[in-house]
């Protein structure tokens, strides 16, 4: 069973880079049966990436009313994505739209788990906020453990 992990974000928009940085960290672990990709979040490219996989994990920065560094977990087999949740993307056809379109065209993977890290600063820059950096380390470890066990129980 192979798993696709997609880190979404913009390297030069401060906390928006957290998904990409987690993808970078996971790449260094060389986890078996796991493909790591990075994406700007453009929706059609996301569908193109995930359509050949049964199990997908997405990681992106989010902005809601939660505390910076909060890790949100959305299991798409149980709940829907709020369209204004992943508002950090400048793409108008982004992750929420991609999920809806894929659902319409029967191109959703069997399981899809979305991790969102609450960001604080999305201005131009290359540093993560301290709260987001802490969440990055925590979520990287969590996903790494899940992938290494690869029982993928959380999704099955």
């Amino acid at each position: 069973m192979s798993v696709l992990v997609i880190g979404i974000g913009n390297k030069y928009r401060s906390d928006d880079a957290v998904g990409l940085e987690i993808a970078d960290s996971l790449s260094e672990c060389n986890i078996k049966n796991c493909t790591i990709q990075r994406s700007s979040g453009e929706g059609i490219a996301l569908i193109n990436l995930w359509e050949d996989f049964d199990h997908v994990i997405l990681i992106d920065a989010v902005k809601s009313d939660s505390k910076a560094g909060t890790i949100h977990t959305i299991d798409l087999s149980k709940e829907s994505l709020q369209t204004d949740f992943f508002q950090t993307s400048s793409h108008l056809f982004a992750l929420p739209e991609a999920v809806q379109l894929a659902k319409t065209l029967d191109k959703l993977p069997k399981t899809m788990l979305v991790y969102g890290i609450e960001g604080k600063n999305f201005d131009y820059g290359t540093e993560l906020s301290p709260e987001v950096l802490k969440a990055k380390i925590e979520l990287t470890d969590r996903i790494k453990t899940e992938l290494l066990e690869l029982s993928f129980n959380i999704l099955s």
Binding site: D16, T83, Q87, S89, L92, F122
Partner: peptide, 8 residues
């Protein structure tokens, strides 16, 4: 700079 998006 991110701002709130809505589908409609």
């Amino acid at each position: 700079m991110p701002t709130v998006k809505n589908l409609k």
